[in-house]
Each structure stands twice: as structure tokens, then as C-alpha cells.
Simulated assay, not measured.
Amino acid sequence: MPDNKVPAELPLLDEDYALTPEQIASYQENGHIKLDGVAAPDEIECYEPVIAGYVRQHNHHDKPLRERDTYGKAFIQVGNLWEFSEEAARFVMARRFAKIAAELMGVEAVRIYHDQALFKEPGGGFTPWHQDQLYWPLDSSNTITMWMPLVDVSEEVGSMTFVDGTHKLGYVSRQLISDESHKTIGSYIEGKGLATTSYGALSAGDATFHAGWTIHSAPGNPTESMREVMTVIYYADGTRALNPDSRARENDLKRWLPGVNPGELAVSPLNPVVYQR
């Protein structure tokens, strides 16, 4: 749990970010949206060194890129930074971000599922097609991920590509993120003639939000700069835990919902309410 005091100069990130009815409707129709300037440049300037520092400390990769599998080449992945320090917790628990999540989903309150730093190294590989909620033992479609770059992301690197409307389909494939999921889901997208959206270059502090079932992927990083991204996953308060139907969901239940049994409310010390209307 956090054990550091938060420097007073770190921004609170509690001011409202105004959404339009058209933006909310677009998210609910397509399952994804890009929002400009969710965090201001001076705010990112304060938090980027904090988050990047913890990623460096907790990077588990001990092999060079060329020796890793597709998943390992995709990114450096560090979860629940908010447990490490009050500095990271202030970012992850930000009222501004959580309020956006609640309003896009049209719910009264949201809890944290977990956060993840996803840093794509120079030369890092692509992220295969997948659905996040394949991993989550949550009995609700009201789940959403905020994906925010902490550095400018060029057109060459790009943001994620989303498959429009696929949040309404539920399971498309039960394959975890892998070459196999990329092939299977890619064939499904092509066979169905599904439309895709890529938002291209993003500035630090811009953010995309996507639903748990929305199919998405990300390109590799051909540049010499680290693609630094921080994500926060939210779900509607009142959601119950599912009986895990896979090893991945069993693992997630134990790690991110400790002490919660299937059928019970998805509430543990790791899942605080971060916004309530």
C-alpha cells in the first residue's frame, strides 16, 4: 500500500472535464472515444517522472526484446502503481478521470479495477487484437479503460486501433493476447467487414477510453523513444464477481479482487469508489 507522502506541488486532478452529449453518445455507440487534453501539459510534467520511475524499478523483463514472445515484446507492463506510493495513487484515483469514465458509461459511481503502466520500448512489437474483458471476472458490461500517453505519441507510433461497436458483442474469441488471438480475431474482423478507428498521433495528456469488450490492437514502436502510457480500468459500482471460467480470470479474481467470492459484490480494499455523482 502507499507509504510515501505526496508532495504538495503534485496537481490534484479533481477539476471537471466537460463532456458533450454527442461525445457520450459516440462512446456508447462505438465503444471507444478520444478526448483531447484530459490532463494538462503541466500536470503531465509533474506525474510522468513519478510513473516512469516506478516502471523502471518494477520492470520484470530480464531478456532482450529479440528473445521474448509476442506478448513480452509488446510492452513493459507494471500493475497497480497506486499501491507503491501516494504519488501514483493521486494520479490513478483522480476524480477528473473517474468522472469521465462514469459519464461515458452512464453510471452513478465507479470503482477502480486496477491500473497498468504500458511502456512500449524502442523497437517494441505490436499488441495483438484482443478484448480486455476476457481477463476480468466482472459480471457487467459497464467497464472502461482510460489509456493516456505521458509523452507525445507520433503518427509513426500511433495509438490503438479499435473495432467499432464490438463492445456490444461480448466474447468474440477466448484466446488470450497472442499471435493466435491476432490471427483469429483479425479473420473475424475481415470476414464480417467491421469498421475500425485509429486516432493516430496523441499529445501527452490526451486520452482514449474504451469498453472492456471493445476489440483493439496497437502497432509496434519503430522509433528510438519509449512510448509511455498509463492506463486505469474502472467498473460500475454494484458490479458482482463472476465465477471464473478460465485460469486468467481465476488469477485476476485473486489479484485484483482479493477476498471476493463469485456472486459477491466486487468490493475489496483494492477497489475503492473513485467517483460518485
Rank of each mutant, 00 (worst) to 15 (best):
E156C: 06
M160N: 12
F162Q: 06
F162R: 09
T166N: 04
K168I: 01
L169V: 03
L169T: 05
G170H: 13
G170N: 12
Y171C: 02
Y171G: 00
S173N: 06
R174G: 11
R174M: 11
R174A: 07
Q175R: 14
L176F: 07
S178A: 07
S178F: 03
D179F: 01
D179S: 12
E180K: 14
E180C: 00
H182K: 02
K183F: 01
K183V: 12
T184F: 01
T184W: 00
G186K: 08
S187T: 04
Y188L: 06
G191A: 10
G191N: 10
G193K: 09
A195Y: 02
T196Q: 13
T197E: 10
Y199H: 14
G200R: 09
A201Q: 09
L202I: 03
S203V: 00
A204D: 07
D206Q: 08
T208D: 10
H210Y: 08
A211Y: 01
A211L: 01
W213F: 15
W213S: 04
W213T: 00
I215L: 15
I215Q: 03
S217W: 03
S217P: 00
G220N: 05
T223A: 04
E224M: 08
E224R: 13
E224F: 01
S225T: 12
R227S: 09
V229M: 13
T231G: 05
T231D: 01
T231S: 15
V232R: 04
I233T: 14
D237M: 03
R240N: 14
